[in-house]
């Protein structure tokens, strides 16, 4: 494992922990999209179908369990916790799941490395992860005033994507035959979706202001 991959995993982990911390300690999920969180839970559930059958390393297994556990507990908090669920901006978070899930499923059935159930589910999870942030970005645009923790959450997720691209570049040059178009293209699309957010995040950081997104 190279330093970019490790740093990417750590920022991914940090993003989830920031979100759980916000929800657990402040008992608020204001500005957080339940749609995005449900999509991430679906992404991890589909991607880690091999969690008990394909052992890569203890690190991988533990991280998979953390991502599965944290994504489902965030969804649980937002849906069922008697205090947290009241802070959920239901009327603003109107993005429809199936607009993202169905095209990703069709694409995974058409474009995959091998037409088996596990492989198609794995490919579907990659496509879905690429666009799962969209409901969150739409919600940020609508509410515009973003608290620090929500801003940091999206920033850390974007950093994780950027670091994974560096990891692929590194692996391409250091490992023979490391060519994975599906992973790369969906990863690149995902990272590009953050570009706009990053621009405003940088501006607010530079001017030492609270993050405001334009309408």
């Amino acid at each position: 494992m190279n330093i970019f991959r490790l740093a990417g995993d750590m920022t991914h982990l940090a993003s989830v922990l920031v979100l759980l911390l916000k929800i657990h300690t402040i008992k608020s999920c204001a500005g957080v999209s339940l749609k995005t969180q449900e999509l991430y839970a679906l992404v991890f559930a589909c991607r880690y179908l091999d969690i008990f059958t394909n052992f890569v390393s203890l690190y991988n297994t533990v991280m998979k369990l953390i991502f599965l556990g944290s994504s489902f507990s965030i969804v649980w908090y937002m849906r069922y916790h008697k205090v947290v669920r009241r802070s959920y901006d239901k009327d603003q978070d109107t993005f429809r799941h199936y607009f993202l899930v169905l095209p990703c499923l069709v694409l995974a059935l058409l474009i995959n490395e091998k037409f088996t159930f596990k492989e198609v589910m794995w490919t579907f999870s990659l496509y879905l992860e690429a666009v799962a942030i969209l409901p969150q970005l739409v919600l940020l645009q609508r509410t515009r005033n973003i608290d620090n923790l929500t801003g940091q959450y999206v920033f850390l997720l974007g950093a994780y994507r950027g670091l994974y691209i560096l990891n692929w570049i590194y692996r391409y040059f250091t490992e023979p035959h490391f060519v994975h178009w599906i992973t790369w293209i969906s990863g690149l699309v995902q990272t590009l979706l953050y570009a706009d957010f990053f621009y405003y995040y940088y501006q607010s950081w530079k001017n030492n202001q609270k993050l405001h997104l334009p309408a």
Binding site: R5, D9, H12, D50, N54, V56, S57, N60, M63, K64, F67, W122, Y164, N167, E175, P176, H177, F178, H180, T183
Partner: peptide, 10 residues
Amino acid sequence: CYKESPKDEL
């Protein structure tokens, strides 16, 4: 080799 597959990533 499995180690080179992207499935060793998260």
